[in-house]
Nucleic acid binder design. Sequence first.
DNA 1: GTAGCTGCAAACTCTTTGCAACTCT
DNA 2: AGAGTTGCAAAGAGTTTGCAGCTAC
Lengths: 135, 135
Amino acid sequence: MNNLEQKCADAGLKMTGQRKLILQVLDTAEDHPSVETVYERAKELDSSISMATVYRTLNMLDELNLVIRHEFKENFSRYEVNEAHHHHLIDLETGDVIEFQNAELEKLKEKIANELGFDLVDHRLELYGKKINKK
Amino acid sequence: MNNLEQKCADAGLKMTGQRKLILQVLDTAEDHPSVETVYERAKELDSSISMATVYRTLNMLDELNLVIRHEFKENFSRYEVNEAHHHHLIDLETGDVIEFQNAELEKLKEKIANELGFDLVDHRLELYGKKINKK
DNA sequence: GTAGCTGCAAACTCTTTGCAACTCT
DNA sequence: AGAGTTGCAAAGAGTTTGCAGCTAC
């Protein structure tokens, strides 16, 4: 039982075959898969799984904060396991997603919110760019 | 003819009655209206205008960069006239949108993109918070 | 006159949900 | 046994689009 499965069990979720599949797909993903992609990957392992289950499971995992739902400038959601905090740079030419961290940025956004009289609860920071020096 | 109308005319758009209405609604808006809201406000001025026209017009304006389309953590789009660059803090309790600017932040995001080997083309930065010291 | 614009209704995409059958614990 | 979970198909929400008629230029 991997780490994610453990956390789900702790949260009182039944560990059904479908859930294990989805968790495995998420756990081994090195990208930021869409629901469709999670579905396709899970389907390779058990062709009877349905989209509805994938949607329901991802929503549960999001509520439990075990995954993060991203809505980049696309018309669908992508997911990733909630591990170390980081931000994303999206390559506009390939759709690739690059992760980065920046301590200065973290401080700055807290500071800005506080100066405006707010407690920062959540945020969204995404950069969209094109590779320099492309041939 | 206001500033927005002038820019549209310059872009070769026909200045129809419906477009003038939508431009006027946007120009006088002090908030960040959704398509639905733009539609409702335009409808007060001419009850025969249709949603399809509002959608089409906002899409055109977005392509011409005369307005900015925002997709905050909601399931619909909001628009504002593209004027001075700024970011947004969304009050999670009221849905109010507060605008802010921060020079340090601007530099920082450029720098981060460049360090990753990218030209920054676009970005998204939104803060979500709750008012401090609420009674 | 005609290219572009409009309203209407239908279509589309992504996501959610009601229901009856099934399954983990 | 029973609450929770599933697959299916239908429904929802927001948005886009084909078409026939209309309008700014």
